[in-house]
């Protein structure tokens, strides 16, 4: 029989090991990409367009495309997702319909992205004749990240105490006034978390982009241009053996971008919350 003290000791050791191992993997990936990629980073790499299929030059066009695609996807999916979650939490009682919508959202989040890519290709690129372009890509991508935004916003809205709603009603506010003036301001940190997760998925996505936005190397000037995001650029030049060095440099920029978006939002959120307390 093992004594409780001993059990405690080993449990702590195992948990510690798990935590350190996870951190180590994360650190290792970051270190490896930085080590391989940072040497080819220069201002011209960031500001020049790729030439010779990406063998030389920079990644200006992929950076612009990445931002355009992610921004447009978020612009489409956030109102839809937040709207759905408000409807689910505030305007319906727990019933069969809400369960179906919620189950649908969960199913949607389990679908592999390549299926979304194929769907977007058939619907937007072919059927609606939009062609390979940022708009097709953003529409498809926004469907893909919709479940994430719905579920995180729903949790955030649900966690706002019911007392606050009642207090607002008792002061003569309507349901909509209560939602906009009390519930949403309280739920915003949670909603933003969902949106950040969505941005992360947009930036890292390849399958959907290849199917719906194409892989053109030119700098896009409108949302009707075909474009190649950083993730796709990395995928193509690495897989086709065009330039491993440039691929690592692209990966490095991609990682730095995702991390800085996370840090910025974390910082802003912290400021927002501490201002209210």
């Amino acid at each position: 029989m093992i004594s409780p003290q001993r059990e405690q000791f080993w449990a702590e050791m195992v948990l510690k090991l798990a935590a350190f191992f996870s951190l180590f993997i994360l650190g290792f990936i970051l270190f490896y990409i930085t080590w391989k990629g940072v040497s080819s980073i220069s201002l011209s790499f960031l500001l020049e367009n790729p030439s010779d299929m990406g063998r030389s030059g920079g990644i200006f066009a992929p950076i612009v495309s990445t931002f355009m695609l992610a921004f447009l996807s978020i612009l489409i999916s956030t109102p839809m997702g937040v709207g759905t979650s408000i409807f689910l939490t505030e305007y319906t009682n727990e019933s069969r319909i809400t369960r179906i919508i919620r189950f649908g959202a969960d199913c949607l989040s389990g679908i592999p992205s390549i299926i979304f890519g194929l769907f977007g290709f058939v619907l937007f690129v072919i059927k609606l004749n939009l062609g390979w372009c940022i708009l097709s890509g953003a529409l498809t991508m926004s469907f893909m990240i919709l479940p994430t935004i719905i579920r995180t916003s729903e949790e955030a809205i649900k966690s706002v105490p019911f007392d606050l709603r009642e207090a607002s009603y008792s002061l003569g506010a309507s349901k909509w006034q209560t939602i906009t003036k009390v519930v949403l301001p309280e739920a915003i940190p949670g909603i933003v978390t969902g949106v950040i997760l969505g941005i992360g998925r947009c930036i890292g996505e390849t399958a959907v982009v290849i199917f719906t936005a194409g892989a053109a190397l030119n700098t896009p000037t409108s949302i009707f241009d075909s474009a190649r995001t950083m993730a796709v650029h990395f995928y193509i030049i690495a897989r086709e053996g065009i330039s491993t060095q440039k691929a690592y440099a692209t990966a490095f920029v991609l990682v730095v971008l995702v991390l800085s978006i996370n840090f910025c939002t974390y910082f802003l959120m912290h400021k927002y919350i501490s201002k209210k307390k």
């Binding site: 606050l164 009642e166 207090a167 002061l171 003569g172 506010a173």
Partner: peptide, 24 residues
């Protein structure tokens, strides 16, 4: 008007709490 058993202040400033009803 209704005052609840536990004090439920809105997570806003003192000023905003009082102006909430009149503003509506």
């Amino acid at each position: 008007g209704f005052v609840f058993a536990r004090p439920v202040v809105l997570p806003k400033s003192i000023w905003e709490n009082i102006c909430y009803g009149p503003k509506l």
